[in-house]
């Protein structure tokens, strides 16, 4: 159901497809479904004044304004939100799972980067 660009990046871009494959697939149900399906939007909700927007999920909508209304109905019906951002899913560039070890593993051995070597006063609540 959810298709992040990350997962589809393995497929050839439409312009890279051989011409006859495109014209053939136009008649198939699959292409009809794709054609009739609304674009996907990623939804970010800010729950409280001052906190950052957080990714809440994704949904289909005909355009950005409609995506806001859908997000309001799907993700804020239990008073979760103060503010909504929507972003077309295609606008998101994601890391590839193959790069995981190169990008993230080196940080695993650097414990000194964590702010755990000093005491936090009890009065400080928002850490």
């Amino acid at each position: 159901m959810r298709r992040l660009p990350m997962q589809t990046s393995a497929l050839p871009a439409p312009h890279a497809m051989p011409r006859e494959r495109i014209s053939k697939s136009k008649e198939s149900n699959e292409t009809m479904t794709d054609k009739n399906e609304w674009p996907l939007f990623e939804v970010f909700i800010r729950s409280k004044q001052g906190l950052a927007h957080q990714h809440a999920g994704s949904l289909h909508a005909a355009d950005a304004e409609m995506a806001i209304e859908n997000a309001r109905d799907v993700y804020t019906r239990r008073s979760e939100g103060q503010s909504i951002w929507v972003v077309p899913s295609t606008a998101i560039t994601a890391t590839s799972p193959d790069d995981k070890s190169v990008l993230f593993d080196p940080a695993d051995t650097k414990v000194y980067r964590h702010p755990t070597f000093y005491d936090v006063p009890d009065e400080v609540e928002c850490l």
Partner: peptide, 11 residues
């Protein structure tokens, strides 16, 4: 027509 609208109309 869609799950999003289903929720919207139910709301």
């Amino acid at each position: 027509p869609t799950v999003e609208l289903d929720i919207a109309l139910g709301n």
